[in-house]
């Protein structure tokens, strides 16, 4: 089958069959299980990320060139609309500062802290390789554990949430994008606070799953992270809801609208579940009024993630 005048036909045929069987075994073993060769994969990503960064430069340059031409063609029009937006934002900023001042005062009176979960620190990185294929939607960024990145950290673009860290190697990390089949993010509507799970399906428009019949979701709603899963901070912008069919919602992601070259990572520490079993926890009717929102048990948080309570803040 694979012979040539100088080759042993039988040996090459056997080599081919063995290679095919080995690949098939790897393929079947990898299906539906934890990733095989995880360390090899992390190392391969770490080794190739500088090369990929170099190779991606001309591509990003070409993208910028096209984008620049496009921007220049509508510069005047855009300038006008930006000026109008700036005037509106100045007014909004003043209002926001006033509200912030009032909120701080109320917090002092009540002894509560309703501050944002979003960390102030940002770790910048470059998306050196982005795969948006039919099998997987992920990206490789050129920052890793040495820069302080950990599994689960949210990754942002200037537009909005991009994904979260799936694997952090020493110098490179793999990011699971929001559209990936395995991506599940706890989200809410900015307008109604209705909850859902943003579920990727390897398409450009991830779906809203676990949407309750009474949940107030509508076309055009802005979607942000709810923080209910304890993995992501609340309030990260994600996209806009689009109703494809009655009660069938998809989300147009902010991050997929532009080229993603530079990203940043929020070193957000997720809420760690305690080792406590169900038996150790008090029954729900035994929880007294003194148990405030700060004392919610981890299991309660988990149940909120799996079955979101639509319409509740």
């Amino acid at each position: 089958m694979f012979g040539s005048p100088t080759d042993n036909t039988r040996a090459s045929t056997i080599a081919f069959i063995l290679a095919f069987i080995a690949s098939a075994i790897l393929f079947i073993s990898d299906r539906g299980s934890e990733r095989l060769l995880l360390r090899t994969q992390t190392n391969a990503e770490a080794v190739t990320s500088p090369g990929l960064a170099m190779l991606s430069k001309p591509l990003r340059g070409a993208e910028s060139l096209v984008a620049e031409f496009k921007d220049r063609s509508r510069a005047l029009e855009e300038n006008k609309s930006l000026r109008e937006e700036l005037y509106a934002l100045r007014e909004d900023k003043q209002r926001a500062e006033l509200i912030e001042m009032k909120l701080r005062r109320f917090e002092e009176i009540l002894g509560a802290d309703s501050g944002l979960d979003i960390p102030a620190q940002k770790i910048a990185a470059r998306a050196v390789s982005e795969i948006e294929g039919p099998f997987v939607r992920s990206a490789l960024i050129n920052a890793g554990r040495k820069q302080g990145l950990k599994k689960g950290h949210p990754v942002m673009t200037v537009e909005g949430l991009y994904g979260h860290i799936l694997r952090a190697g020493p110098k490179a990390s793999r990011v699971l994008l929001l559209g990936d089949l395995n991506s599940r993010i706890s989200v809410m509507s900015m307008r109604s606070s209705a909850r859902a799970i943003l579920s990727g399906d390897n398409s450009d428009l991830p779906r809203l799953a676990f949407v309750d019949d009474r949940a107030d979701w509508a076309d055009g709603d802005k979607v942000i992270t709810s923080g209910d899963d304890g993995v992501m901070p609340a309030g990260l912008p994600i996209g806009v809801v689009k109703e494809q069919a009655p009660r069938d919602f998809v989300v147009e992601l902010y991050s997929s609208q532009k080229n993603n070259d530079w990203v940043w990572v929020y070193p957000y520490e997720p809420i760690v579940l305690s080792e406590a079993t169900e038996d150790d926890l008090p029954d729900s009717d035994q929880v007294t009024a003194a148990d405030g929102p700060d004392e919610v048990q981890p299991e309660t948080l988990e149940s909120q993630t799996l079955v979101p309570q639509p319409g509740t803040p």
Partner: peptide, 28 residues
């Protein structure tokens, strides 16, 4: 031919690792 088969299999697996897709897919 044997070296060719070996190199092609390894390159297929390398692509699987880099693309984070199902392992063995491109090797096959």
């Amino acid at each position: 031919a044997i070296m060719s088969i070996l190199v092609i299999t390894l390159m297929g697996l390398f692509l699987d690792l880099l693309s984070a897709g199902p392992l063995g897919l491109w090797a096959l």
